[in-house]
Structure formats: structure tokens, C-alpha cells
Design a protein around this nucleic acid. Structure first.
Length: 878
DNA sequence: GCGGACTGCTTACCT
DNA sequence: ACAGGTAAGCAGTCCGCG
């Protein structure tokens, strides 16, 4: 009975924020000790080692820093010995706590009270706060009746303890430290003179900025060592095809485990199964592939071998290991009778870690939106994010096609299939000189989030953590979200789009037509530049200082900005932007050493991710420093910069054709005039503007965010066109591409007339094929992704949902993230999933319309209509 | 009862 | 769960129409 209650309590606790702590002090159940072999050494002295992870070790009741010494290939565990305690802050003084909130003192996890002086940036004043310290993180918050629930208002009580520890002890993940006399000491990093020169040129005698930037340079300059790693992928016996075994239950045998190590390990552990023989041909086939195979009679022995190998690597890499591979292995091991302390894997709420080092789940990492769009330029955007799609997009490698169920494969097929997956996973961290690993380490350093956290959280969490660290470093109180909103209020403008909070960017109506020689000028990271130039930050915008109320950078908005003190966001984003634009982008170009060049390129792309997201977070309600006036001022000043530049361009007699947010398309500009414009912008607005590119030809239909540009090398920039969208049927895409080919073959504008006939013939050809139903279904299907569970489409039933519901009737279940393939038909629903459709049911007229919208986006630029093109050919046929 | 004008929802895109 | 702005198609509603 007692045991049962405790189990429930245990589960209950697990659901809370501080999931690292699984057991409370004094509890005897569920021994969690890590056995000797799977614990890192804790020497009193060590060579330089990189911080892999910082966590809270519940058993030891202390923060644990996991370090990796790349030279000697060793892992060290350093436990906090500074007496650091979890804490929260309150504005209630100690006497009042004792008298009015005695339950705080009586709390079983209570440790002691301290007084601390903080700077409350939001209200611009010094404050004295009471620091309530506890013996363990859960006593602060996360369990029932924790201290933060007893007090009416607390600060900094929702920060995970291991992050709090990082801020207070200044332990930067991804940086080098060494253990000296039992203490953890930062390793000094040399800054090249070249970089120093750049910085000096930038900040000259601005002591404040020079001092600030000093903190950042080591993060960009510290070398990134090779971290030995192991990729793991498993195959599980599946009784029914297409039914993925549940990792929570782990009911079926693991039949093979593929291991690919950065040290050259290529091994597959295979379970011997009755009725499956290994033939000589198979042995020969396997030998060719240079994959080592170990056969096991029992699954238990196979897992033991796996665990032995796992303990030899500081970094474990998987693709979806959090939700499948590692979870399955863990639960299966428990089922087979392993004790928890014999398994070098730790299960957390929605994450699996390894006891010794860190686990990176690449599926989660590549699913981070900011990574997808900024770091990889949307290369693998679109289709479902599987190992296959990501690997083929980034490294042009594919999984081995599977033509039969896993269960029916012979050993050779199984081993090959399995190993390829592990290899691809490893390779995604190895290609291009370990680009992905370097990126992860740099992101970790900049954000101060351990590798485990950075690879599993979105960019807003990165920026939040970076900002928290900066607050602590300065002795600033970290504000509560509600306090910022209460003091600063909501936005003052009205968005164009219903449901949005404030007015955004300007898009200039494009002039339709075909234009040769179009120059695109572009503000260099406009929004971050604005944040820097106007000192924007949550504490400087609408500051409490009455004397500042006349500093209104944008007169139509009531918001003023403090010019007496430097804004924290402005300083940090300013430095990151300066380092990217003026230092690392530059030296990446000028450096001759290819290795260094690539390294600096990774630095600048890591910076890019933070910079690009820096404005957006202030307009995101979920962000802890959410401040609508800041976001609103940024876009307003962006509109100002854009419109002033446009007016100036017109004054100079230049011909602007189009512009969106931070760019202006100028038709055949006079070089002198253009130079004048650029200089005027830099002088008057104080924002850098550059010539981004010059198009040989631009075709614009008159629609915004929609154009085709031909670059000097003949390549095409196709923006926003229906013919390029991923949900457009292939046949429409092909027609669009064919027409485009004809246009791009045009050398001079005067050739328009002669090419027109060619276009007409082409369009008619597609039209006729469609009418004759000669286009196969797979070229007619529309791909549309399902963004929420089927039941949640309550307001209406879009076509892809109708198709999905039909699939459901056939027992095929689909959910969020799945792509529905359907064909437009003349049946009741107007749509059928491809699998169920017949070619004679296709609604031809719908596809003619599709062809029309797609081609009109091109034809409108030429001044011809789709009907005219079809009509003319029809007539000519008669 | 039916079709056109309208709004709103949804997805995919641009910066 | 970084933002707002735009294009496009379809679902659903309202209204006029003997």
C-alpha cells in the first residue's frame, strides 16, 4: 500500500518542469545509482575539456557538469562543490516570511534565506530581494506544495535548476574548462589579431562595447574539437506490416542494432532467429560492405553488448531516438530484466539521455524551424522530415529502398538496411567537416543552453536563455512576463491581417511587365539594425523616466525610448549583428585557410539564426520578455526606412518597380544615382543598404511576393509562383517549367513575339492531354499537409481533410504532419485520395483552372491572357 | 432551390 | 509556439430571385 502511493507520487512529479530530479532525498525505492562503469571519472586535476552537458544529479543532490577531453578521449564528471543551491527571489523581507509565511521555513526542502541586491531594469531602480534557498530544485517549484506556491509572488522560480547553475557559475556549454584542485576553471582563448583589429575599428573607444564584446569573442574563437560519437539505429520484429511497435510497451524483439561510429566502427548486432539461415552468399555479400556482424543467441546478451559499446562514446546520435530507438531499447531492457543502473540510458518525460555523455536526436534538431529556414535555407522544407528526405536534401544520400517487411528480410538484407540508417545518421553530423556538430556547439555557446537542450528547443527558448544569462551576469532581476505587459502595455497600431497584434512591413505594389537590368538593393539585416540603432529593448522603450518622453523615434507612435542607458537587447543583438556582418562574414571571405574559412562560415550562420529571430520573439506572446511596443517600433521604423528610401529614389529619378519589407527593385539604374541613393540612406538613416543582386530580366505579373528573376549566370529566382509551390500537381509544375524555359531562352525583349507562338503550342499541348485524360493520376495529385488532428477541423472541411476522412474509412489513419495526396474528382466530395481514385472520375475543369492560375502568373507579365493563348490556338486549328 | 457576392478558414509562400 | 503580409482555393452564409 505504501509502495503504491509512492509510485503515484513519483509519476506525478515526473510531469513537472524539473524532471531531472526523479527521487527525493531519503527515498529508498527505485535505486538510481549509476554503476561504476557508466560513470565518468572525477579527478582533482584534468586537461582542458569541453562542457558537453550540465544537469542536476538527483542522487548526488548537486549540479553535474559532464566534460569531454578530446585529446585523451575521456569523460569527466564534475560535481558542484561550491555549495550552490536552488533558489527563488521574493520581495517579501525575511522577517515577514517567517511571520506571515511560516510554511516556507517549515518546508522540508527549505535551506536558508539570503538578502540580495538586484537592478530592476523594468522599473529602473535598485531593489533588495530575499533569496529563498532550498535543498533541491523540486522544493522551489515543480512538486506539490513547493515553496513558490506558498508565496504570493516570486521571481526566477521557474528557471530550470541546471540553467540557473549555468548562469551563476558562468559555465558555458561547448566551452573549454579544466579541473584544477577540484575546481572548474575556464580555459583562456586566444583572439587573433585580425579579429581584434576588426573589433577595434568597429567600437574604437566605446569602452562599454569593447568590454561587452570581450565576453563574446572567445565563444566564436574557441576551437571545436572532434567529439567521438556513435550513431544507433534499431530494427524491431513487427507482427503486422505498417504497424510500428510501441516503444512504451516494447513488446517485440529487437532483431538488429546498427552502430556507426566516428572512429570507424561499422557493426551490426543481430539476433539469431529460428528459421533464418545465414548462407555463404550472404556472408560474401556482407564482407563486401565492410560491416562487422555479431550474432547473438539471446536478446539480453545483445543489449549487454550494446550497453558496453554505448559507454565508450561521449556522444550518441540517433534519428528519432527520443521517441523510438532509445526509448524502445530502454523499455525492452527493463522487460528483459536489466536493472536501471545497468542501462546507460536515462528516460525523461519526452527525452532520452545517456548516463555518460549526451544524446542528440537529429530528428528533433532538424525539426527546429529556425534551423530549417535559416541554417539550411529551407533545403529540406516541404515533405515529411524523415531520415530519407533530410539525407537526400543535405548529403544526396538515400535510405536503402525497402521492398518487403523487415521480418521477411534475410540477414544480409536486414544488416544492410539497418546499417545504412545508422550510417546516414552519423554522416549527417560528419559531412562538410562536421558542419552540423559545429553549428550545434556554436549555438550552444551563444545561447548558453547545453547540447541536449539546444537540439530540442525552438529559437525562442535559445534567446530566452541567452537573455537570462545576460541578466544574471549583470546582477539584473529577470522580469516576470506579466510585469512587462503591465508596465509597457499592448501595441498601438492595428494589423492588416485580422487576428494579428500590430502593423508589420510594407509591400510595394509591383509594376507588371518584363524589365531588363533590374537592380535589387537591400537593407542589411534591417530589423536587428533598427534594434541596435534606436537602443530598443524592453526596459528602454516606454521607460519610467519622465525626461525621456520626448524621444520618439517614430512620431506617429506614442512610444518613447530611453537614451540615458543602453538597452540590453540593443547591446546584445547589436554585437551579434556586428560580429556577423563586419567580422565573421568578412574574414570568411578573405581567409585563405579553407578550414578556417569554413569555421568562420559556421560562426556567421550560427549568428544569423539568433539575429533573424531577435525581432520576432518580442512580438511573440509566449516569449518571456514579450513586449509589443518594442516589436511595433521595429516594424514602424522599418516602414519608415523603406518609404523614405523609396521617396528619395523617386527624387533622384530612379525607377523603383517593387519592394518588400527591406528590399527595393530598381529598373536600369543610373550608376551614379544609385550610388547617391545608397550614400544618402547610410548617412540619413544610418542603416547599411547594399546592392544585393542585379537581374538580367525580371518578369512581374502585378501580384505582390510573386516574380521571376533571371540572374546574370542564367539561373532563375522564382518567388511565390503557384507553379513552384509544393502542393501544386506535377503536371501543372511541368507546364509551368516548360513555359518558363521558353521565356528564359529569350535573350532580348524583342524576341517576345517570336516566343509567343512557342508558348501557345506548349500550353495547348498540355491542355489537350488533360482533356484526353492522358495525364496519369500521380501527376494530377495535390499534396497537402494536415496540420492538426482530423477532429479539430470543426469550422469547415477543406478538401485534404475530406480525402483524409475517406482514407480513414479504409483503415488508413493520418494525423498532424502527414501529407495527404488527393485528386480533384466529380464525385460527391469533389475529391478522392489518389489511392482510391480512377482516371475517369477526374474533374478536368478544375485542372484547367489550376493550369490557368499557374500560367497566368507568367503570362500576365507578358501582357497576354490564358484564354487568348488557348483561344488563338483553337482557332488556328480550325 | 440556386447562383453570385461575400467572409472566413486553411495552406503555402515572402521578407 | 520568432513576426506580419500576400496569394489562392474552398467552405459556408446571406441575399435576391416571382
Amino acid at each position: 500500500m505504501v509502495k503504491k502511493i509512492r509510485e503515484e507520487e513519483y509519476r506525478f512529479e515526473e510531469d513537472f518542469e524539473e524532471e531531472e530530479v526523479q527521487l527525493r532525498e531519503g527515498e529508498e525505492f527505485e535505486e538510481e545509482s549509476i554503476s561504476f562503469e557508466i560513470r565518468g571519472e572525477t579527478p582533482s586535476i584534468s586537461p582542458p575539456a569541453i562542457v558537453l552537458s550540465v544537469t542536476y544529479d538527483g542522487k548526488a543532490g548537486r549540479a553535474l557538469v559532464k566534460l569531454y577531453d578530446p585529446v585523451n578521449d575521456r569523460i569527466y564528471f564534475w560535481y558542484d562543490n561550491t555549495g550552490h543551491r536552488p533558489y527563488l527571489l521574493t520581495d517579501i523581507d525575511p522577517v515577514d516570511i517567517v511571520t506571515r509565511f511560516p510554511r516556507v521555513i517549515q518546508h522540508r526542502g527549505f535551506s536558508h534565506l539570503e538578502l540580495v541586491r538586484k537592478y530592476d531594469a523594468l522599473n529602473d531602480r535598485e531593489v533588495v530581494m530575499t533569496k529563498v534557498c532550498a535543498k533541491d530544485p523540486l522544493s522551489i517549484g515543480g512538486a506539490r506544495e513547493s515553496i513558490r506556491d506558498i508565496l504570493p509572488k516570486t521571481w526566477e522560480s521557474k528557471i530550470k535548476y541546471h540553467l540557473c547553475y549555468i548562469y551563476d557559475r558562468d559555465i558555458i556549454p561547448g566551452m573549454f574548462y579544466r579541473i584544477e584542485n577540484g575546481k572548474l576553471v575556464k580555459v583562456d582563448i586566444d583572439i587573433p589579431q585580425e579579429v581584434r583589429d576588426f573589433v577595434h575599428k568597429l567600437y574604437g573607444n566605446d569602452e562599454y562595447m569593447l568590454e561587452e564584446v570581450e565576453k563574446w569573442l572567445p565563444l566564436f574563437q574557441a576551437p571545436i574539437p572532434h567529439i567521438k560519437r556513435l550513431a544507433i539505429d534499431i530494427e524491431v520484429f513487427t507482427p503486422k506490416e505498417n504497424k510500428i511497435p510501441k516503444p512504451e510497451e516494447a513488446n517485440y524483439e529487437i532483431i538488429s542494432i546498427a552502430l556507426a561510429g566516428s572512429d570507424g566502427l561499422r557493426r551490426v548486432l543481430v539476433l539469431k532467429r529460428p528459421g533464418l539461415d545465414l548462407t555463404w552468399e550472404q556472408v560474401e555479400k556482407l564482407r563486401d560492405d565492410d560491416v562487422e556482424i555479431m550474432f547473438f543467441d539471446s536478446e539480453y546478451e545483445m543489449l549487454r553488448e550494446l550497453f558496453k559499446i554505448v559507454c565508450q562514446y561521449p556522444l550518441i546520435v540517433t534519428f528519432n531516438g527520443d521517441n523510438f530507438d532509445l526509448k524502445y531499447i530502454y523499455n525492452r531492457a527493463l522487460k528483459l530484466g536489466f536493472r536501471k543502473d545497468e542501462i546507460p540510458i536515462i528516460s525523461k518525460r519526452d527525452e532520452m539521455t545517456v548516463a555518460l555523455g549526451v544524446h542528440v536526436d537529429l530528428y528533433k534538431f532538424f525539426n527546429i524551424r529556425a534551423i530549417e529556414t535559416y541554417a539550411f535555407g529551407g533545403k529540406y522544407r516541404g515533405a515529411e522530415k524523415t531520415l530519407d528526405t533530410i539525407a537526400s536534401a543535405l548529403v544526396k544520400m538515400k535510405k536503402i529502398p525497402r521492398d518487403k517487411p523487415i521480418n521477411e528480410m534475410d540477414y544480409a538484407e536486414l544488416v544492410n538496411y539497418n546499417f545504412r540508417d545508422a550510417f546516414l545518421t552519423l554522416y549527417l553530423t560528419m559531412y562538410d567537416n562536421e558542419l552540423v556538430m559545429k553549428l550545434i556547439i556554436l549555438l550552444s555557446r551563444i545561447s548558453k543552453l547545453p547540447i541536449d537542450d539546444i537540439t530540442r528547443s525552438q529559437v525562442s527558448a535559445w534567446i530566452k536563455n541567452m537573455m537570462y544569462y545576460e541578466h544574471r551576469r549583470r546582477g539584473w532581476l529577470i522580469p516576470e512576463k506579466e510585469d512587462i505587459i503591465n508596465v509597457k502595455g499592448e501595441a498601438a497600431t492595428k494589423a492588416i491581417i485580422k487576428g494579428k497584434k500590430y502593423l508589420g512591413a510594407i509591400v510595394i505594389d509591383p509594376v507588371p511587365g518584363i524589365f531588363p537590368n533590374v537592380c535589387v538593393v537591400d537593407f542589411a539585416s534591417l530589423y536587428p539594425s533598427i534594434i541596435k540603432k534606436w537602443n530598443l529593448s524592453y526596459e528602454t522603450v516606454k521607460c519610467p523616466d519622465e525626461t525621456q518622453k520626448n524621444n520618439r523615434p517614430y512620431p506617429d507612435l506614442p512610444h518613447w525610448v530611453c537614451y540615458n542607458r543602453r538597452g540590453l537587447t540593443s547591446t546584445i543583438i547589436g554585437i551579434l549583428r556586428d560580429m556577423r556582418v563586419y567580422v565573421y562574414k568578412k574574414i570568411a571571405k578573405t581567409t585563405n585557410n579553407p578550414i578556417l574559412k569554413q569555421f568562420y562560415d559556421v560562426v556567421q550562420s550560427a549568428l544569423k539564426v539568433f539575429i533573424n529571430a531577435s525581432y520576432g520573439v518580442f512580438g511573440a506572446e509566449t516569449f518571456q520578455l514579450y513586449c509589443p511596443p518594442v516589436a511595433e517600433l521595429v516594424t514602424a521604423l522599418g516602414r519608415l526606412a523603406m518609404s523614405m528610401t523609396l521617396i528619395k529614389a523617386l527624387e533622384l529619378g530612379l525607377v523603383p518597380l517593387y519592394g518588400d519589407t527591406d528590399s527595393l527593385f530598381i529598373w536600369s539604374p543610373d550608376e551614379e544615382k544609385l550610388k547617391e541613393l545608397i550614400e544618402w540612406v547610410e548617412e540619413t538613416l544610418g542603416i547599411d543598404i547594399d546592392i544585393d543582386k542585379t537581374y538580367r530580366l525580371v518578369a512581374m505579373s502585378g501580384r505582390k511576393k510573386n516574380y521571376i528573376g533571371i540572374l546574370p549566370d542564367g539561373s532563375l529566382d522564382i518567388k511565390g509562383m503557384v507553379g513552384k509551390k509544393r502542393n501544386t500537381p506535377d503536371f501543372v509544375k511541368e507546364a509551368f517549367a516548360d513555359v518558363l524555359k521558353i521565356i528564359s531562352s529569350m535573350e532580348k525583349i524583342t524576341e517576345v513575339e517570336t516566343k509567343l507562338d512557342e508558348i501557345r503550342r506548349k500550353v495547348k499541348e498540355y491542355y489537350d492531354k488533360l482533356r484526353r485524360r492522358e495525364i496519369p493520376l500521380n501527376k494530377l495529385m495535390v499534396r497537402m499537409s494536415l496540420n492538426k488532428p482530423l477532429e479539430q477541423y470543426t469550422k469547415n472541411k477543406p478538401q485534404h481533410v475530406k480525402a483524409a476522412l475517406q482514407l480513414k474509412q479504409y483503415g488508413i489513419n493520418v494525423g498532424p504532419g502527414d501529407i495527404i495526396y488527393f485528386v480533384k474528382t466529380r464525385t460527391k466530395d469533389g475529391v478522392k485520395p489518389v489511392q482510391l481514385a480512377r482516371i475517369d472520375e477526374v474533374d478536368i475543369d478544375k485542372y484547367v483552372e489550376y493550369l490557368r492560375t499557374s500560367l497566368e502568373q507568367v503570362l500576365d507579365a507578358l501582357g497576354i491572357s490564358f484564354d487568348e493563348v488557348l483561344g488563338a490556338t483553337k482557332l488556328s486549328l480550325v
